[in-house]
Design a protein around this nucleic acid. Structure first.
Lengths: 113, 113
DNA sequence: CGGCATCCTTTCTGATACTG
DNA sequence: CAGTATCAGAAAGGATGCCG
């Protein structure tokens, strides 16, 4: 796998299957938000702001839209009064769990001090 | 809300074993550099600049120092003329391969279009 | 309730020049 | 060869206010 990245002097942006994962998970809040939604199955905007105390409206909104654009979550709006919006995880989102699991094991192993 | 009784928003970031992985792999060049070093077993500074055409001295230098600080690579300097420096992967660095492998599988599965 | 618009601060990246 | 110093521009993150 490592060799895939090793074609020298190729100036084309050689396609790398790792890139989408990093792109999709980059950003200060991506994982926290995604994990909350996974954990809660389905979550509302306000629920997420409470679950992630330091996040601002702006960043939660941005993060949710990016996760949705990348197909990791879906947004469902109920036109009630007051407005209700539910975010839930997709298959594509759930399929990231093996990645997280390996990260988790690595994190545990090298948990330092 | 009677939050004046509960003035403290909780400041303890509940420890998450995923965080170190993301911290360690964040940055535009981390993975490319790490993968080159894995692929080449051991690599010199100039070798890396040639292998990663668009990287600048500044960014390569910064990236290498961070990877070293995080224990993913080691730096060995030979005081020859001209100076020679070899970067090589550590066990801790190699142990990230399962993470990359899962990312790779996900990337393949959801390779788009 | 669930946001978006605006403006501002901080962090990251990169071009250029120079050194042991 | 293998970097560091400096500075400027770009991008990411955040505070505040308003609206359907």
């Amino acid at each position: 796998m490592a060799e895939n990245l090793n074609n020298k002097e190729n100036c084309n942006p050689n396609y790398n299957p790792l890139d989408p994962v990093f792109n999709v998970l980059q950003g200060k809040w991506k994982n926290q938000v995604l994990f909350e939604i996974i954990a809660l199955k389905s979550a509302r905007f306000g629920q997420l702001t409470r679950a992630i105390p330091k996040i601002t409206n702006t960043m939660l909104s941005t993060t949710l839209r990016e996760l949705e654009k990348d197909g990791l979550i879906t947004r469902k709006q109920y036109n009630e009064i007051p407005l209700r919006v539910e975010y839930s995880i997709t298959e594509k989102g759930k399929d990231l769990l093996p990645v997280y699991y390996e990260m988790y094991k690595w994190g545990i192993k090298y948990q330092k001090e």
